[in-house]
Design a protein around this nucleic acid. Structure first.
Ligand code: NAD
Ligand code: NAD
Lengths: 233, 233
DNA sequence: TATTAATTGTTAAATTTATAACAACGCAAA
DNA sequence: TTTGCGTTGTTATAAATTTAACAATTAATA
């Protein structure tokens, strides 16, 4: 089996963590560090050192016993694995609040991921540039996507339009879609889809805060019960 | 064991899906549907019907055999479980591109989750209102958080400021933090923390697109090999 | 009335993911 | 030199999560 075959079988969760490790390592590099221990990476990411070592084992990276992992080497290896050699071009669909925020945020962040186009229906936005990236008429989608060799589309149109936009993207030959609207879309086999609704994360936080509140309240009640019981003596 | 105790032990993944189910159900309700089958929910969420039925089993909801699940009832039950009775107040830290986008997006979306305050350091923003929510000076954080009974903070300050902001939040008695900056923070036991870096999701899509591209290229090579072999006959 | 088709609810099995355990190593200090 | 400490790499174990299997049920239909 080729090395690239084992990489194809990396657990999904490991892929996510590799991206997170690299992000953390890039920050460490800025701070003039050159080596890092598994427990240091673990602390930053709120996971265990074993998890880190296991992930690095899976990608076949070895550190040194006393110094840990060479940060630059590790960054390069992770990049080899998760980045595409030739680079991948990305488009944002819908230059509203979120679309513009994302464009601004992603722009220039990663060598191998370039946002090269955006699309909208609003005539005030079409023809303009945001962050030096041109905003095209959505009706030109297929033409531009093919011309610019765009492989990934980020959907930030109004929720009601998400499915229509996804369909157009598929028709234009897109390979991957990241849908940020709260309305899930359907894509055919072969197109990689990731959906993320930010409200789910907020509701999750809210749920566990609520749980913790109730747990705390329960403890107060229990203490009271014990208190009453004791006073019976 | 009380019913509330079983709910405390719901798998984390189930919690996330419950939020997603509700979101999908709310959309269905708008479309005048009143019942829904497990396989319909599953299709929307890109999961299996068994997964859906299992989740609903865990929260103790029963549908009817021929009509499926009553949408309104299910929404109400999910809301009972994941929402806090009294409601939870939320603040956004950093009224930049992302902060304003989120404020605009979340505002009024959920009865039981209210964004009631925002904070910034920029004098141009302090004192103003965005979406009718006042923007306070970050130095007033503790005062406002206590006064307004804010339990959750969403961090959208520049990454360099994320840790300092988290510390302040903890000091102010916050119960949950949702950190959208790419720089992870640390919080003490008892504060629920969720971190989300959008670039990780994009990199994940990119990785699987790359994999699919390589797989397709491999197949072409294999076909060529076979072709050559065949021509040897 | 029996039969068929579709669906739920639940237990059992499989898969995926995380954690634990521990040998091997290398340096520092006794 | 040897002992101790802290680290890595890896295998074994455990936990979490998903999927499969299937009995039970309902309503439509032959
Ligand atoms: N704002 C947020 O923080 C946030 C967070 C999570 C999810 N979302 C979701 O992201 C989407 C966009 O949110 P927003 O706040 O940026 O909304 P917005 O209204 O500010 O932006 C939507 C943009 O899409 C354009 N548009 C409309 N129809 C289009 C079409 N068919 N093709 C291309 N462009 C089209 C509009 O002209 C507008 O510029 C919504 O679905 C929203 O639910 C937003
Ligand atoms: N824009 C995006 O789509 C996006 C996506 C993912 C993550 N992020 C992250 O979210 C954060 C904000 O991004 P943005 O694009 O909104 O940046 P931005 O510069 O537009 O906004 C930052 C805001 O925080 C304020 N601020 C600075 N220091 C502060 C402090 N100590 N306390 C309170 N407020 C403070 C600034 O005045 C500004 O209003 C960044 O960390 C960024 O990496 C942004």
């Amino acid at each position: 089996m080729k090395a690239s075959d084992t990489l194809k079988q990396l657990p999904h969760k490991t892929i996510e963590r590799l991206s997170q490790y690299r992000r953390a390592l890039l920050i460490c590099l800025e701070n003039k560090k050159d080596h890092i221990f598994s427990h240091e990476i673990a602390k930053i990411q709120h996971i265990t050192p074993v998890q880190v070592r296991r992930d690095l084992m899976l990608i076949g990276y070895s550190g040194t016993l006393r110094k840990g992992y060479n940060i630059q080497e590790l960054i390069d290896l992770i990049s080899d694995i998760i980045d595409s050699n030739e680079g991948i071009n990305v488009a944002i669909l819908g230059m509203g609040n979120l679309g513009r925020a994302l464009l601004n945020y992603f722009s220039g962040k990663r060598h191998k991921l370039s946002i090269v186009a955006s699309f909208d229906v609003n005539p005030d936005k079409i023809g303009k540039s945001f962050n030096n990236i041109p905003c095209h008429n959505i009706t030109d989608m297929e033409k531009v996507i093919k011309r610019e060799n765009i492989e990934i589309g980020i959907i930030t149109v109004p929720a009601s339009q998400s499915m229509a936009t996804a369909k157009q993207l598929v028709k234009s030959g897109i390979k991957g879609i990241l849908n940020y609207t709260p309305k899930p879309v359907e894509v055919p086999e072969g197109v990689y889809l990731e959906e993320y609704d930010m409200i789910t994360t907020l509701e999750k936080v809210s749920f566990y805060v609520k749980m913790e509140n109730e747990r705390a309240a329960d403890q107060v009640i229990q203490r009271k019960d014990q208190g009453t019981a004791a006073s019976d003596f």
